[in-house]
């Protein structure tokens, strides 16, 4: 799980071009949207593509996204339980 969290942080930094942010700057429970990392709706689409492309998870219910993308912790937990690759 720790490895997956590290991997997710790296993917988020690279894919979303978070130039001034390092892996150490993102705590597992930090909010990804809003006051935390400050991601927006376009980033949400990028995260959905990461789930699909890298872990074989297709989000069918958009409402699910809100709880899944709350933090690195929640993302990692959801991926561990649902990944197909």
């Amino acid at each position: 799980m720790e490895e997956l969290k590290e991997e997710l942080k790296n993917k988020i930094i690279t894919t979303l071009n978070l130039e001034d942010i390092a892996v150490e700057d993102i705590a597992d429970n930090d909010a990804l949207f809003g006051d935390g990392l400050g991601l927006d709706s376009i980033d949400a689409l990028e995260l959905i593509v990461i789930l699909d492309k890298d872990y074989g998870i297709k989000l069918v219910d958009p409402k699910e996204g809100k709880s899944i993308f709350q933090s690195i912790e929640t993302m990692a937990a959801y991926i561990s339980a649902n990944r197909t690759k």
Binding site: T15, I42, L45, E46, V49, D52, K53
Partner: peptide
């Protein structure tokens, strides 16, 4: 690269 799947919005926008 992705065989017309997994297209991310940023570079398109």
């Amino acid at each position: 690269d992705n065989k017309e799947e997994f297209l991310t919005p940023t570079s398109f926008i």
